[in-house]
Design a protein around this nucleic acid. Structure first.
Length: 894
RNA sequence: GUGGGGGUGCCGGAGUGGUCAAACGGGCACGGUUGAGGGCCGUGUGGCUUAGUGCCUGCGCGAGUUCAAACCUCGUCCCCCACACCA
């Protein structure tokens, strides 16, 4: 067994010295930007990383060999909580801790043999990088897209800190599992809602994204068209506005609900006898954590405000309630309730015994409101709706909306589920928000020429509050406007800001006047292939799309989608569960690389499953790949003592054909990202190569075939392949070589199948002779059946060959003696007229096989020194073989 | 609840109308090589059967479409993932 570790050390060094992987803007070449989602530098690589990079690196190497100018960079998403927690726990500086981790993880990536252009490394914690986060912040502010407002944030009372939404799992802190509370704080937001329509509509441009990701984003943005309807409060000079997608039910409204936080509620109850009661309810709801309030599912709570409203369409008066199922931040925070046609309203009305009114009736039967067990949400015809009675409810949506608008009672609007992006974090290890608070001037942005606002070093990590607040010299500054003393914003930015544009930075990582150079971005972007986990399907990918659109609006780029093709790799599983430290089923990639080499680890991980599927880790599988790579290596290591010829015998031609087919298959499969299948094809090819060299070989054919596998396997197992490449005497590095081309004319699957069939037949005859203890045969009969399928398909083929006109074809079918099947053929014809290359595959093969058999007759006769007959129609006694196709003729040896 | 993805051999996993008992790999069994082991090479791996072979059964379960279905349609059961009271 070869020492792969030694081989990989040798080549990793050579690659680094020769700088083969540096990306260059070459105008005469097509570019290819291959990118993996950059990692958070925590401790060390896990299998998920290894999988991610194995996929990306193979693809980058493949594209490079195919003649593209490839940009394949790596960087680190280096801001975030773990560094700060390490600071609290171990009293280390978060910066030192992070840079140490970056070095560690980079070391491990290098051990994997990844072909990154390390010159372009980006660390988001470098001031040279986060300076531009601040710059973007200022630009967003200029355009009115960054703003400050009071908001509820997640607060973990145990960790004493704010948590990002993503860090709240089932209403609990991801680290200490303590219940998360809501706190009201002044926060910074990015107005992503302004981009909601573009973000949604452009999803349809993303042809090469997985559907599920696109659907998730669509649902997340959640655009719904509806109508705002205004209601007067009885005995008050107050108008309430509600949002609905179902204006067709407007005549069925029987109560109104407000979200408890809604400010109008206070106006409604002030000074009334309901005031205390309602306020108590609101207090109770607010005290509840998000889990209690939402995870409960169906159980809804509410309280009557004592007020009534007037329905403008019919003058009816109904009560106004406050309920926990109305959400403050969707629509207007108030809901018009139609219990008969909305399940939630129905549940609530039943519980509190509120009135119900039917306004949509199914056409087939009548509904008795008293006996309804659930809301009727199907289509139907309007009833109890005055002038609109009898109209289908779908049509009524439009008609009633128009009616409401004409009367001034309503207005058509659009609503989104997506909320503005809250980017403030009361944490230290992030990009400082470049804002100064001045008593006189208010909120003042830090002038551009004073960027970056550097994150100070001398802060105290107590585990309580924001460490930045402990740094006096950071907080105290002067107002850029009036030069009077002022204080700095101590919030930092969400780390998702960092990752929303890093792919642009890779295009010009050393640029210092702008985040990146326009011409560089125009050359490299968009990312042609992006690879990462499905967990980022919404947040990161959506934010990155948002940023790209914003950057385009700034005029810095001319495209508006960052990622052309997206691959979401599956999880790594072991013993039926996701590999994770808490379960204790992890396998350290470095151990595998140290024992079997990086190539083994990479090939195993790529072979074990298709990239987007779950991967089940298996130690036996790793050992098997190790064996396979050794087997490939022996193709060039071994001294071959097989007899050689200069002529091309059949088996040599065979080998050449196999080689070309393998090149084609592997190329296509990699392009489609079916990497495990590509490796499977290479295993099969290796086996064939061994069989081939077992007998008489043609040296040139063999050498070429070996050369091909070295190149085809090299994206997956680059070190071993480089080594082999050198062993066969190539002077130039394999990484610089061009991907092998296949010769179409050498790929004749049918001829291949035919030849294989003939050789199979010959060996069958030999084994029959052996088994029957005969030295030679007098006569060999080969029975080849004329099957129904064969007849059927060849009839179809003949017809199609003669004409492509469907009308004519039908006539021809009628004229055939296969009238019985005529009907079926006519059904199939349209399909094959569309794609005529598809049909006759079977027939072609069978025909060629039969022809080859006839041709081979002489060869068989001289081989066995006997008479050979080929019988196409079987005699009844050999009826057994009736089903057999030319590919397996029945043999009778006499 | 809504949306998405799945159920194929002892196992991981291909195949998505016809050359398919099912790629490739693992495991297991047998044989060869070897002092032994490892390694390497070969053969086999649903049942019955043949000299070659053939037949039956089979791709969660049930039904349907078709000359033909693991693949299409409908129903049904189970599993996984995401979002979860969005009016």
């Amino acid at each position: 067994m070869a020492d792969f570790v030694k081989i990989q050390e040798k080549w990793q060094k050579k690659w680094e010295e020769s700088k083969v992987f540096e990306a260059k803007e070459e105008p005469d070449k097509k570019k290819f930007y291959c990118l993996e989602m950059f990692p958070y530098p925590s401790g060390c690589l896990h299998m998920g990383h290894v999988r991610n990079y194995s996929i990306g690196d193979s693809f980058a190497r493949f594209k490079r060999m195919r003649g593209f100018s490839v940009l394949y960079p790596m960087g680190y998403d280096a801001m975030g909580l773990p560094a700060e927690n390490a600071a609290i726990k171990s009293k280390v500086d978060p910066g030192d801790w992070t840079y140490k981790n970056i070095d560690g993880i980079k070391e491990q990536q290098k051990l994997m043999g990844l072909s990154y252009d390390w010159n372009r490394q980006v660390n988001t914690c470098d001031p040279e990088y986060y300076k531009w986060n601040q710059w973007f912040f200022l630009k967003l502010m200029e355009k009115g897209l960054a703003y400050r407002k009071g908001a509820e944030v997640n607060w973990c009372p145990d960790c004493n800190t704010v948590l990002a939404n993503e860090q709240v799992e089932d209403g609990r802190c991801w680290r200490c599992k303590h219940e998360v509370q809501q706190r009201d704080l002044e926060q910074w937001f990015f107005k992503i809602q302004d981009y909601a329509d573009r973000l949604l509509d452009d999803i349809d441009k993303l042809d090469d994204w997985p559907d599920r990701v696109k659907i998730m984003q669509k649902n997340w943005i959640g655009r719904s068209y509806g109508t705002e309807i205004f209601f007067k409060v009885k005995d008050m000079d107050l108008t309430i506005s509600t949002f609905t997608t179902r204006p067709d039910t407007v005549y069925g409204i029987t109560y109104l609900v407000f979200a408890p936080e809604h400010s109008i509620v206070q106006k409604l109850i002030k000074g009334t006898k309901h005031e205390d009661n309602v306020n108590e309810f609101i207090k109770k709801v607010k005290k509840q954590s998000n889990i209690e309030r939402t995870a409960e599912g169906k159980e809804k709570h509410g309280v009557f405000t004592g007020r009534y409203f007037v329905n403008p369409v019919n003058g009816e008066e109904f009560p106004i309630w406050v309920a926990d199922y109305a959400l403050m931040d969707y629509g207007t925070g108030a809901v018009m309730a139609v219990p008969t046609h909305d399940q939630r309203d129905f549940d609530f009305a039943k519980k509190y015994d509120l009135p119900m009114k039917l306004v949509i009736s199914p056409e087939a039967y009548d509904i008795n409101v008293e006996k309804m067990a659930r809301a009727y949400v199907e289509e139907g015809v309007l009833v109890n709706s005055e002038d609109f009675d009898g109209i289908n409810n779908r049509e009524a949506i439009d008609k009633i909306s128009k009616f409401l608008e004409e009367k001034g009672w309503g207005k058509r609007t659009v609503n989104y589920k997506i909320r503005d992006w809250l980017i403030s974090r009361q944490r230290y290890w992030g990009t400082p928000i470049p804002i100064i608070y001045c008593k006189d001037c208010g909120i003042v942005p830090v002038p551009e020429d004073q960027l970056p606002v550097i994150l100070p070093k001398n802060v105290k990590f107590t585990g309580e509050g924001n460490p930045l607040e402990t740094c006096e010299e950071f907080i105290h500054t002067t107002c850029p406007n009036c030069k009077k003393p002022a204080t700095r914003e101590t919030d930092t930015m969400d780390t998702f800001v960092d990752s929303s544009w890093y792919f642009l930075r890779y295009c010009s990582p050393h640029e210092d006047r702008l985040p990146f150079k326009k011409e560089d971005a125009q050359y490299w972007m968009p990312v042609d292939q992006y690879i990462g986990g499905i967990e980022h399907a919404i947040l990161h990918l959506l934010y990155a799309r948002f940023f790209t659109k914003f950057v385009k609006d700034l005029g810095l780029i001319e495209f508006d989608e960052p990622f052309k093709r997206l691959l979401c790799q599956g999880m790594v599983i072991k013993d039926g569960a996701k590999m994770s430290k808490s379960i204790g089923n992890t396998v350290d990639p470095m151990e595998i690389i140290g024992k079997y080499g990086a190539d083994t680890a990479r090939v195993f991980i790529l072979f074990a499953a298709l990239p987007e599927k779950e991967l089940d880790w298996s130690d036996e599988g790793v050992a098997a790949i190790y064996k396979f790579l050794n087997r490939v290596l022996r193709l060039v290591e071994d001294d071959i003592d097989s007899p050689t010829t200069k002529e091309l015998a059949n088996r040599d031609k065979h080998m050449v054909g196999k080689m070309h087919r393998t090149i084609k298959k592997v190329t296509d499969l990699i392009e489609e990202f079916k990497l495990s299948l590509a490796i499977g094809v290479l295993m099969d090819y290796t086996n064939k190569l061994y069989k081939y060299r077992d007998g008489q070989i043609n040296k040139e054919v063999y050498d070429n075939a070996v050369k091909a596998i070295i190149q085809l396997l090299s994206p997956f197992a680059p070190h071993v392949c480089e080594e082999m490449w050198e062993m066969i005497g190539e002077k130039e590095m394999l990484s610089k070589s061009s991907w092998p081309e296949f010769d179409k004319t050498m790929i004749d699957e049918e001829a291949e199948a035919a030849e294989e069939m003939v050789s199979q037949t010959i060996s069958d005859i030999a084994s029959v002779l052996k088994l029957t203890n005969k030295e030679s045969a007098k006569k060999v009969t080969l029975f080849v059946a004329d099957t129904w399928k064969y007849n059927f398909m060849s009839t179809l083929k003949t017809i199609l060959e003669e004409t492509r006109n469907p009308g004519e074809i039908l006539g021809k079918i009628m004229a055939t003696d296969l009238k019985k099947q005529g009907q079926q053929i006519s059904k199939m014809v349209p399909k094959y007229v569309k794609d005529p290359s598809k049909i006759p595959a079977t027939v072609l093969t069978l025909e060629k096989e039969y022809a080859a058999l006839v041709e081979a007759k002489e060869a068989i006769e001289s081989e066995f020194k006997c008479e050979v007959n080929i019988v196409k129609e079987l005699e009844s006694k050999e009826a057994k073989a009736r089903q057999s196709m030319p590919s397996k003729p029945a043999i009778l040896v006499e």
